[in-house]
């Protein structure tokens, strides 16, 4: 697209938007609200996923070792666990270390085991699985490869709660996709309607421009630019609204939110996602305008 061509297109697009400010504003507001809703879901899911990753790193599968194992046998079992499939790290927690850790983590109960000559807690292997193995299947594989070895007791892990949480995240993710499926076509149609109105308003003008040799691109580009401009403005509006909601409404929902994302500090969309939201608006506008132009071409 040559410079004079682009200048003309931009000038025409802006004057067309100025000529029908109400329809342009309706399009901008529609795209803005649509992207606000989608952005809110993205924000929630992103925060929940972040938490999920965080949990993942905390999850250790504890393999308790029976009383009879001596330190040598424990070290052998740890070495054996290190080469088990899907295992990232193995830490051997001797009985003394387990007691020490218990006292550190629960100082209020620190006196509970006082007086025992020896630690009453079993030794264990604290196993960190590779990220892709942090699920029921990964644990099952681990159990399979360790069970039956002499000295291996029971396995314990906080896995169930996490997999429930992961399930909620994927449900929300599905809800966001469903929401997009409903909102995006509706938004397309509204943008297409706006561009169609511009097209009608300028019908005579466009016909004249065609008669004096205006190419298809020359006629279409101001309308496409109008769609893109409305869309990008809508995206920006959605982003601003989302930020305002985040800032103003979040404190009011602290309680409910902590159910969803726990004590983790919520974060707003990063710069990439924010630009993505504006770009999504521009894309919506472009597609809406394209639909309007194609419809028009089919009709004439």
């Amino acid at each position: 697209m040559s410079l004079p061509f682009a200048q003309t297109a931009l000038r025409t697009a802006l004057s067309s938007m100025r000529a029908s400010p109400v329809t342009s504003l309706v399009a901008v507001a529609t795209i803005g609200l649509c992207l606000l809703l989608i952005g809110a879901f993205v924000l929630l899911v992103a925060n929940m996923e972040r938490l999920l990753d965080h949990f993942g790193e905390e999850i250790r599968v504890s393999v308790y070792l029976s009383e009879e194992t001596d330190i040598e046998a424990q070290q052998q079992l740890a070495a054996r666990a290190r080469i088990a499939p899907g295992v990232l790290e193995v830490e051997l927690l001797t009985r003394e270390a387990a007691l020490e850790r218990f006292r550190q983590h629960q100082p209020e109960h620190a006196t509970l085991f006082e007086g025992f000559g020896e630690s009453p807690l079993p030794a264990s292997l604290e196993i960190l699985l590779a990220p892709e193995q942090r699920n029921e299947q990964g644990v099952a594989i681990l159990v399979e490869s360790l069970s039956g070895l002499p000295g291996i007791g029971e396995l314990g892990y906080g896995h169930e709660w996490v997999s429930g949480y992961a399930h909620v995240v994927s449900l929300l993710y599905g809800a966001a996709v469903a929401l997009c499926c409903v909102l995006l076509p509706a938004t397309f149609l509204i943008v297409a309607g706006t561009i169609r109105l511009s097209l009608y308003a300028r019908r005579d003008e466009i016909e004249i421009v065609r008669l004096i040799g205006g190419s298809r691109g020359f006629v279409a580009s101001p309308l496409l630019l109008e769609g893109i401009t409305c869309g990008a403005c809508g995206g920006l509006l959605g982003l601003v609204l989302l930020y305002l909601c985040y800032r103003l409404l979040l404190p009011a929902f602290e309680g409910g939110l902590s159910l969803l994302i726990g004590t983790a500090e919520p974060v707003f969309l990063g710069i990439g996602a924010a630009c993505g939201l504006i770009a999504a608006g521009a894309l919506l506008g472009l597609l809406g305008a394209t639909i309007a132009l194609l419809q028009d071409e089919l009709r004439s």
Binding site: S2, L3, P4, F5, T8, A19, E205, I208, V209, L211, I212, G213, G214, S215, F218
Partner: peptide
Amino acid sequence: VVFQDFKLLPRHTVEQNVGIALDVMGVP
């Protein structure tokens, strides 16, 4: 082409009406 009904662009100025014939050719 000089049209019988002129086909001028009513919302554009005289200057723009002539200029559009050069716009479609991409004249700077």
